[in-house]
Amino acid sequence: MNRDNLTSEFLALERKLKMLLSEHKALKDEVKYLKNENEELRSSMKLKDEHLNNFQNKFKISKLVSNLAVDQEDTVELKQVINEYIKEIDMCIAHLSE
C-alpha cells in the first residue's frame, strides 16, 4: 500500500472513532437522564401510593363510623374526633417522611 492510501484509511478510521466516541457520550448522557427520570417517577409513584393508602384508611374509618349504631349527636362528635386523629397521624407520617 502506498502512503496516500494509508493516510486516507487512517483519516477514515479516525473519523469513525470520533463518531463512535461522540455516539457513546450521547448514549451515556441519555442513560443518565433516563436513570434520573426513572428515580423521579419511582419517588412520585411511592408518594402517590402513600396518599392512596391514606385515603383508603380514611374511607375505611368513615365507613366504620357511619355503621356505628349510635345517635346522630354522638356520631358527629365521633367523626370529629376521628378526623382530628387522622390529621395528627398524617402530620406524623409527613414528618417521618422528611
Rank of each mutant, 00 (worst) to 15 (best):
residue 22 S to Q: 15
residue 73 E to C: 05
residue 84 E to W: 02
residue 13 L to Q: 14
residue 33 Y to S: 09
residue 63 K to H: 07
residue 50 E to Q: 09
residue 75 T to Q: 11
residue 19 M to W: 09
residue 97 S to I: 00
residue 65 V to K: 03
residue 25 K to H: 08
residue 76 V to D: 08
residue 45 M to D: 01
residue 23 E to T: 05
residue 50 E to P: 01
residue 79 K to H: 08
residue 9 E to N: 15
residue 92 C to K: 14
residue 78 L to A: 08
residue 29 D to Q: 03
residue 54 N to A: 06
residue 43 S to V: 01
residue 60 K to M: 09
residue 48 K to L: 06
residue 16 K to T: 15
residue 71 D to M: 09
residue 3 R to Y: 08
residue 3 R to W: 10
residue 29 D to T: 02
residue 61 I to G: 02
residue 8 S to H: 09
residue 85 Y to W: 08
residue 47 L to Y: 05
residue 28 K to I: 01
residue 35 K to T: 05
residue 69 A to E: 15
residue 93 I to R: 03
residue 61 I to P: 02
residue 84 E to P: 01
residue 31 V to N: 03
residue 55 F to K: 00
residue 72 Q to E: 15
residue 9 E to K: 11
residue 26 A to M: 07
residue 56 Q to L: 11
residue 25 K to N: 07
residue 94 A to W: 01
residue 48 K to E: 09
residue 56 Q to H: 09
residue 48 K to T: 09
residue 79 K to L: 10
residue 37 E to K: 11
residue 41 L to G: 10
residue 63 K to A: 10
residue 86 I to E: 09
residue 41 L to F: 06
residue 74 D to P: 03
residue 90 D to W: 01
residue 5 N to K: 13
residue 85 Y to T: 02
residue 39 E to G: 00
residue 95 H to V: 03
residue 70 V to P: 00
residue 97 S to R: 14
residue 28 K to N: 02
residue 38 N to T: 01
residue 24 H to A: 13
residue 62 S to E: 14
residue 55 F to C: 01
residue 9 E to V: 07
residue 64 L to P: 05
residue 8 S to Q: 13
residue 15 R to F: 14
residue 25 K to Q: 11
residue 34 L to A: 03
residue 65 V to M: 13
residue 22 S to Y: 04
residue 87 K to N: 04
residue 1 M to R: 01
residue 58 K to H: 02
residue 97 S to F: 01
residue 48 K to I: 10
residue 40 E to C: 05
residue 34 L to Y: 06
residue 38 N to G: 00
residue 27 L to E: 11
residue 91 M to I: 13
residue 86 I to G: 05
residue 26 A to Y: 03
residue 13 L to M: 12
residue 75 T to G: 12
residue 3 R to K: 12
residue 35 K to S: 11
residue 4 D to V: 14
residue 11 L to C: 07
residue 35 K to H: 10
residue 31 V to F: 03
residue 45 M to V: 06
residue 56 Q to K: 12
residue 38 N to F: 11
residue 37 E to V: 00
residue 14 E to S: 05
residue 96 L to D: 04
residue 21 L to Q: 14
residue 77 E to H: 05
residue 51 H to W: 07
residue 34 L to D: 02
residue 4 D to E: 15
residue 65 V to C: 10
residue 65 V to E: 08
residue 86 I to Q: 12
residue 51 H to Q: 11
residue 32 K to V: 00
residue 16 K to Q: 15
residue 52 L to I: 00
residue 21 L to E: 15
residue 88 E to C: 02
residue 63 K to Y: 11
residue 15 R to G: 07
residue 89 I to W: 05
residue 37 E to C: 00
residue 30 E to A: 08
residue 69 A to H: 15
residue 80 Q to P: 01
residue 6 L to Q: 11
residue 64 L to Q: 12
residue 90 D to R: 02
residue 93 I to W: 05
residue 62 S to R: 08
